[in-house]
């Protein structure tokens, strides 16, 4: 009952789709970054990208955001995941609440935190009502890049920890309970069980979660737009400006190549740093 052509037939639509709308477009965008409309290979779009005064800031803020946000999310999601796995009652409800941000778009998350950090927002209201400040503070003004950065980081942490949490909870679910019981019998306390059993066996899940999360962090865009407008330049925002506002496809493509490049670097890094030795399986 094994028909040789059937699997290929079933895969055909997905393959064609991905080749046409995933592989080919990436070739196209690379071509746009490296060649003029006339087909001449050139580095000028990269020069243009690098020499723009916002370039360094955009690169700096993008990387800085990832560097601040991802470690916090890692710790937070690990903590939440181990909390959840040690719960008996109410586990499902808590998990549902903690994963709510999964369904919230980055733009909506930005707007949500705008409600807090805006000049007339809830944070100012609380500070003012309690007498800490005499008049509302402009947290998100162009002169306060530091507070914009903090607001964006908080919004990102708030929104995107859930995806790591889900991956880690699923990963912890795959670790047999007996390992913990064995560790307990040999005298490991709960912290030792976490560092000596959970963490090493969770490596594949940690790897996936980190790769996925860091790439998403490099794509940060709508949250920044909602909270900082153009006051906090990030790479994806520059792509958007080039493409949509300035209609400069080539430089936009050059920025895209840069994002792609740092994404691949980070993926390779996590694949190496969190590799699982052959034969080790949870």
């Amino acid at each position: 009952m094994q028909s040789r052509s059937l699997p290929y037939l079933l895969l055909l639509p997905a393959t064609v789709f991905l080749v046409c709308f995933f592989l080919y477009p990436f070739v196209l965008v690379a071509w746009q970054a490296f060649a003029t409309d006339e087909g001449e290979i050139t580095g000028k779009y990269f020069n243009k990208m690098v020499s723009h005064w916002k370039f360094e800031k955009a690169l700096y803020y993008t990387l800085a955001l990832a560097l601040v946000v991802v470690p916090v999310q890692l710790v937070l999601s690990l903590m939440m995941a181990s909390f959840v796995s040690s719960m008996k009652k109410g586990r499902d409800l808590i998990l549902y609440i903690w994963t709510i941000p999964l369904g919230i778009s980055d733009l909506a998350a930005g707007i949500i935190w705008l409600a807090i950090f805006d000049q007339t927002g809830f944070l100012n209201s609380v500070l003012y009502s309690t007498g800490i400040v005499d008049e509302p503070v402009t947290f998100l003004g162009y002169q306060n890049k530091g507070t914009i950065f903090i607001a964006v980081a908080l919004a990102e942490i708030w929104r995107a920890t859930a995806i790591m949490l889900v991956i880690l909870v699923a990963g912890i679910g795959l670790i047999p309970k007996e390992y913990y019981e064995a560790a307990q019998v040999y005298g490991a306390n709960s912290w030792q069980r976490f560092t000596k059993i959970t963490l090493p066996l969770l490596k594949p899940s940690l790897q996936t979660a980190l790769i996925l999360r860091v790439i998403l962090a490099f794509e940060v865009f709508a949250v920044v737009s909602a909270l900082g407008g153009t006051n906090l330049p990030v790479l994806m925002g520059e792509v958007y400006n080039r493409q949509f506002v300035l209609q400069d496809n080539h430089t936009a493509a050059a920025f895209a190549m840069l994002i792609l490049f740092i994404s691949i670097i980070s993926t390779v890094f996590f694949m190496w740093a969190l590799r699982t030795p052959k034969g080790v399986k949870a």
Binding site: F22, P25, L28, Q32, A252, L260
Partner: peptide
């Protein structure tokens, strides 16, 4: 597809 920032696809697609 995981290791690629997919929203960037919008760029070449716009031209296509």
């Amino acid at each position: 597809t995981r290791a690629f920032p997919l929203p960037l696809l919008a760029l070449p697609m716009a031209i296509m």
